[in-house]
Design a protein around this nucleic acid. Structure first.
Lengths: 133, 133
DNA sequence: CTAAGGGTTGACGTTGACGTGAGGGTCAAG
DNA sequence: CTTGACCCTCACGTCAACGTCAACCCTTAG
């Protein structure tokens, strides 16, 4: 499939796809005319990339773990060595982010719900989240 | 309290505090010598800012909702008008972010745990998260 | 007096994931 | 054979939340 066929349904821009390739996240084949030729599996890969990017992972880390996620039916995990430790750190970062996101959501919920009443509970939640950060 | 007294325990840099002021998030008084003079309540406010920033809210939005969070014991919510709708949108964004973060964490967990076994369940989770995005 | 360690205001640099043209091939349709 | 819709490769622009450096002032300890 060409870049447009991949971009449209994925909701990701062509520019982003070229950027992903530039960063080593995708390596589409090339047609004789130079056009990029993506396999069907690229759709899934792009979704993986999007999720990991949204989780705050950089393209370089994603480039490292993408091989471990590729073609699960065919290939085995290529034994990522000490990379695992880095992933643990990333995992912790994500967990912390989730906590802060939830705390922020509580604040917003309080603001939305109690549009003209005071709210002390949300501030307590805030302290809890702040202490964990 | 001076800027250093606020920065140190809050874990936020002096530069950040000046930036917050520049963005209208903080308005410390000034000593005769020009030094910023923060009230004790600024500690709490800074934590609020940090949480909301970490939630992906911009400084402009935070500047709008901070008055609604200030001095809950003294002031009442100043009736934020249609701002509430924007907050609802932010809330939804946060919820979506949480979903994606959890999906990403599942991927990482699968990678960490099954360091040499395949993993199909995490890919299903990925599809679910990708569909909601 | 002087050095150390605060503070102040600019103002430019950074980082990451792209946006946005510029300038130019390719290809099926009319 | 030209129009229009794709594609390509540079390559600079953007945006946000600061980092960093410069050049300067204020204050306290020795």
């Amino acid at each position: 499939m060409e870049i447009g066929d991949l971009a449209a349904p994925s909701g990701v821009s062509r520019r982003a796809l070229r950027y992903y390739e530039e960063q080593g996240l995708l390596s589409p084949a090339r047609r004789p005319n130079g056009y990029r030729d993506y396999p069907e599996s690229a759709v899934r890969t792009v979704r993986q990339i999007q999720v990991l990017l949204a989780a705050g992972l950089g393209t370089t880390v994603i480039a490292e773990i993408l091989p471990c996620l590729a073609d699960p039916t065919v290939v085995r995990v290529p034994v990522c060595p000490e990379l695992i430790d880095g992933l643990g750190a990333e995992r912790d970062r994500i967990s912390a982010s989730v906590d802060r996101l939830l705390a922020a959501r509580e604040i917003l919920d309080a603001l939305i719900a109690n549009r003209d009443r005071p709210f002390a509970a949300s501030l307590a939640d805030l302290d809890a989240a702040g202490a964990s950060a």
